[in-house]
Design a protein around this nucleic acid. Structure first.
Length: 318
RNA sequence: GGCGCCAUAGCCAAGCGGUAAGGCACAGGUCUGCAAAACCUUUAUUCCUCGGUCCGAUUCCGAGUGGCGCCU
C-alpha cells in the first residue's frame, strides 16, 4: 500500500496555497488531480499554480497534454498511479490535489478490475439515434434487458451513461454492474489521508470565486482564450473546450454575447460547479477542513494549515 | 391634463370564466471514467389593492395604486 495524502475541495477554496505549505511541511510531491490543468496553454482560466509556486514543490500531471488531445479518468488513474509509485520510490508521499472528484476516485480505487476505455466511435454510432425521444428510449430499453441493475441506477435521459453501460456490455460481454461489483470488492493501492476543504457559508465560497474570476479577467483570460482558438489549439468538440471560462468566453470572440454577459455566465457556471463539487466531496469520508468560521467569517491561513497538518498526523503519526 | 397598454414566484413569462404552463436562478441529489461533463428532484393554497357580477374570477366590470408609451 502506498501511503498518500489527498486534498480536495471546490474551486476557489484555497487548495493550491494550502497544498504548497502542506507538501513543504511533510516533504511530499504534488500530483494534480484536475481534469483541465492537465492541458497546456490553459493557465489563467484553470488557476494553475504559478511558476514560482511550482518551483517550491515538485508538481506532476500539469501541462502534460495539448488541448486537442483526449483524456479520461481511466488515463488519469494510470498516469497518477505510475507517478505515485515513483514518488514512493524516492522516499516521499504523493499529495493529490484537485477538485476533480471522479479522477481522485479513479486513482484511489485502482486495481485489476478496470473497465475498457470508451471509444468515441461507439458514441458517434448512436449520435443520430440519441437525437429523438424514441431513439433514446430504445437504447434504454436495451440496457434494461442487458443490465437491469445499471438501468435502474441510470435515468433514461442520461444518454451518456446509458451508452457507456451498453458499450461496456458490447465490448466485454460482461455487464457494467458486474464490473462495478468486482471493482468494489478489490482493494485500492493506496492508504490515504483524505482532507477536503469546505465552507459553512456557501456564499463565502461564491464570493471568493467571483473575486477570482474578476482577477482572471484582469490577468488576461480573454486573451488566453483568443489565442487558444486563434492558433487552433482548441476545437469546440475537444474535452478542453468544456472548461469553464473557455466555453463562456468563446461567445464573446464570435460576437454572440457581450463581455459582461459572458463574465456573468462564467460566474454562474462556476457556482454550479462548486455546488456539484461539494455534493461529491460530502459523500466521501474525507476529513472536512473549514475555510470559514461557523458564522461565515474568514479563517486565517495558519489555522487552516494547522488543522490540515493535524489531520495528516492523525493518519500518519510518523 | 387626455388617451392607450401593462401589473402572475427572486427574475423572465404563458394562461384570459372551471381551480396557476414553461424557462432561468435558488436548494437538494446522482456519479466506475468525455466529469470544469452529463443527468435527476424540488420550488406561487394564489395572480398589485379594494369593491361588484357569477355556482365559480388570475381571467369579466368599476375604482384606486404603480409602471410604460403616445398626444396636448
Amino acid at each position: 500500500m502506498i501511503q498518500a495524502v489527498a486534498l480536495s475541495g471546490p474551486t476557489a477554496s484555497g487548495k493550491t496555497s494550502l497544498s504548497l505549505s502542506l507538501a513543504e511541511k511533510f516533504g511530499m510531491e504534488i500530483i494534480s488531480c484536475d481534469s483541465m490543468q492537465i492541458y497546456r496553454h490553459m493557465d489563467i482560466g484553470t488557476a494553475k499554480a504559478a511558476k514560482e509556486e511550482r518551483a517550491r514543490v515538485p508538481h506532476h500531471l500539469i501541462d502534460i497534454l495539448e488541448p486537442s488531445e483526449c483524456y479520461s479518468a481511466e488515463d488519469y488513474a494510470k498516469d497518477a498511479l505510475a507517478c505515485a509509485k515513483q514518488i514512493e520510490k524516492r522516499g516521499s508521499r504523493p499529495l493529490f490535489v484537485g477538485g476533480t472528484g471522479l479522477y481522485l476516485d479513479a486513482v484511489l480505487r485502482g486495481g485489476e478490475w478496470q473497465t475498457p476505455p470508451t471509444s468515441p466511435a461507439y458514441h458517434e454510432k448512436y449520435e443520430e439515434q440519441t437525437k429523438t425521444e424514441e431513439g433514446r428510449l430504445a437504447l434504454y430499453e436495451r440496457l434494461l434487458t442487458v443490465d437491469p441493475v445499471s438501468a435502474a441506477a441510470t435515468h433514461p435521459n442520461n444518454v451518456r451513461r446509458v451508452l457507456r453501460a451498453l458499450e461496456i456490455y458490447d465490448l466485454t460481454g460482461i455487464s457494467k454492474s458486474e464490473w462495478d461489483k468486482k471493482s468494489k470488492e478489490q482493494k485500492g493501492p493506496f492508504d490515504v489521508a483524505h482532507l477536503t476543504l469546505d465552507a459553512h457559508d456557501r456564499d463565502f465560497l461564491y464570493k471568493r470565486a467571483d473575486l477570482r474570476i474578476d482577477e482572471m479577467m484582469k490577468a488576461g483570460l480573454l486573451e488566453e482564450v483568443k489565442n487558444l482558438y486563434g492558433k487552433g489549439f482548441l476545437t469546440p468538440q475537444s474535452t478542453a473546450a468544456q472548461a469553464i471560462g473557455y466555453k463562456e468566453l468563446r461567445g464573446v470572440l464570435d460576437g454572440k454575447i457581450s463581455l459582461d454577459e459572458a463574465v456573468e455566465q462564467l460566474k454562474l457556471s462556476t457556482r454550479h460547479y462548486i455546488k456539484r463539487q461539494l455534493t461529491w466531496f460530502h459523500a466521501t469520508d474525507a476529513v472536512r477542513i473549514y475555510i470559514d468560521t461557523e458564522d461565515g467569517c474568514e479563517r486565517s491561513f495558519s489555522s487552516i494549515l494547522s488543522d490540515a497538518e493535524d489531520a495528516v498526523l492523525r493518519k500518519f503519526p510518523d
